[in-house]
Every structure is written in structure tokens, then in C-alpha cells.
Simulated assay, not measured.
Amino acid sequence: MDSPPSDDGYVSAVELCDPRWWAGAVAAYSSWLGTRHAAPGAACCLQHYCGKVLPLVVAEWVRTGRLLSMRHEDWQVRVDENAATTAARHTAARHTAARHTAARHTAGHTASGTPAGVPAVGQAVADHVAPLLDGVLAASNLTRATALGGPAASLGGAVARLYAAADPADRAGIVRDGAAIIAVLEQTAGRALIRLDADGDVLLQTRTTCCLIRLGTERSFCDTCPRMDPIERVRRQRARTRRAHP
């Protein structure tokens, strides 16, 4: 299954569908975090990938109403020596007509005329993550819910950035649709994974699972960690939004 990287260092996301890839990646990521345990590396490695891919999908859908093809063959990623995904790109002009209109949230149709929209996006994301999840679970002792907390957090972060940049009249719909997409992952996990709470110009996010990065050497809580003091969590997220949208 191994294929050589492109001249600019990108490899096909198909490579990450092989459980053997995750065995090495989890070890490398955990070593980078400074922990002997596989779980932190597994959780963070998957979240790192999703944090580069899924925001592109959600942003394109909100902006144009088009769902990028989620076939792994249509994605390439650049992964560093620590198995952290540093960049992602979509390589095909292939889309699914899962329509989204930010202000009106009207559902569109697929080429066959079948209504599509939020459920189609959520299922496409879940299907894309599924083989990666299998590799992560095989390489670690993570529970399914803990592993899926990373993709859910990546979606939550993407929705929060779109929320902050959106016209106030569009924000409620963006939150509603973002939560519905995340809900598909939550069905797979069998539990809630993240809560989204509108707070003025900021969309606050609170995970229900921990990414475990705090277990690494000289590491700390992430900004959405459920173990962090709630006041500090809100302060950090507000500050992050102000930096991105001064």
C-alpha cells in the first residue's frame, strides 16, 4: 500500500487507512509528547489529521454549498517526522451536492434529485474518519468515544471560526448545522462529545472527553478541555477569538 510522497512532501490519505501506518505514527507522536503511553499519541495524532482536513470540508460547504469528495483517494496530507499532520489538500474536482446556504439554510439536492444537506455532510465525515479510527483503536487502548473526541473537537473548532466570521444573522444556523454534523460522530461514539454555546461573538466549545495531551512532558490542557477550570476555559477561548478576529 505504501506509495512515495510527492515532490512537495504530500502523501495520499489512503496511506492512513492502513492500520500499520498508525502503529508507527502513534509511537512517534507519543514520543514527541514525551510519554511512554500510546493513548495520548493516538488521540492527538488523529485529531491533528482531522484538524487539517475537516475545517476545509466545513468551510467549503458553508461558502459554496458543495460537499468536497471525502474519498481518501481525493485527499493528500503532509505529515512530519512526529506523525503530526501539518497540511492537507483536496486533489479532485469532485463534489457532492449537499447544499448549504448560510443565511437561509435551505437544503439542496444531489444529482439524482434526492434531498441532501446536513445529514449527508455528517455521514461523509463519519465515513472518512472510520478507517482512521480503526487504525487508532488497533494501535492503542483508547475507547471509541475518546478517539472520536478529536474529530468532534476539530469540527467544533471549524464551526467556531465560521461563527466568529459570520454575519450575526447567520450565526444561529451555523451553530445548529455544525452541531448536527457533530451529532453523527456522537452516534458512532454512543455519547455526547462536545458542547457548543454561543456567547456573543464567540462560540464556546466544551469537550466531554480529554485528548490526553496533558499527560505529555511539560504539556498542559487544551483550550476546550473538560478538566480545565471553566472560567479559564472561557477566558482562553475568548482570547483566541479576539486574536483571530481583532
Rank of each mutant, 00 (worst) to 15 (best):
M1P: 14
M1E: 15
P4N: 01
P5Y: 15
S6M: 15
D7F: 13
D8C: 11
G9E: 14
Y10C: 08
V11M: 15
S12F: 03
S12W: 09
A13W: 03
V14T: 07
V14L: 15
L16C: 06
W21P: 05
W22G: 01
A23H: 15
A25R: 04
V26F: 11
A28H: 05
A28C: 04
S30D: 12
G34P: 02
G34E: 02
G34R: 07
R36H: 08
H37C: 06
A38Y: 07
A39S: 06
P40R: 09
A43V: 05
C45V: 07
L46E: 01
L46I: 01
K52F: 02
V53L: 09
P55R: 00
L56V: 07
V57P: 01
V57T: 10
W61F: 05
V62G: 06
R63G: 06
T64L: 07
L67H: 05
L68K: 02
H72E: 06
H72G: 01
R78N: 08
V79Y: 03
A83E: 05
T85A: 15
T85C: 15
T86Y: 12
H90N: 09
H90D: 04
H90V: 07
A92R: 14
R94K: 12
A97K: 02
A97S: 03
T101M: 15
A102L: 11
A102S: 13
A103S: 08
H109F: 14
H109S: 14
S112L: 07
G113E: 14
G113L: 11
V118D: 00
V118P: 00
P119F: 11
P119D: 05
V121Y: 03
G122M: 09
G122I: 04
G122K: 05
Q123G: 08
V125E: 02
V129C: 04
P131E: 10
P131L: 12
L133P: 01
D134P: 00
A138G: 11
N141V: 06
N141T: 08
N141D: 13
T143R: 03
T143Y: 05
R144K: 07
A145V: 05
A147H: 01
A147F: 04
L148G: 01
G149Q: 04
G150N: 04
G150W: 11
A152L: 11
S154A: 15
L155H: 03
L155M: 11
G156K: 00
A158P: 02
A160N: 00
A164F: 10
A165N: 13
A172M: 03
I174L: 10
R176A: 10
D177M: 04
G178V: 02
I182L: 07
A183Q: 06
A183E: 09
Q187R: 06
T188S: 09
D199Y: 13
G200T: 10
D201N: 14
V202A: 15
T206H: 12
T208F: 13
T209K: 04
L212F: 14
L212P: 04
R214E: 07
L215R: 10
R219I: 09
R219W: 06
T224E: 08
R227Q: 09
R227P: 02
R227H: 12
D229T: 13
I231D: 14
E232K: 08
R233Q: 12
V234Y: 13
R236P: 12
R236W: 10
Q237T: 10
T241M: 12
R243M: 10
H245E: 11
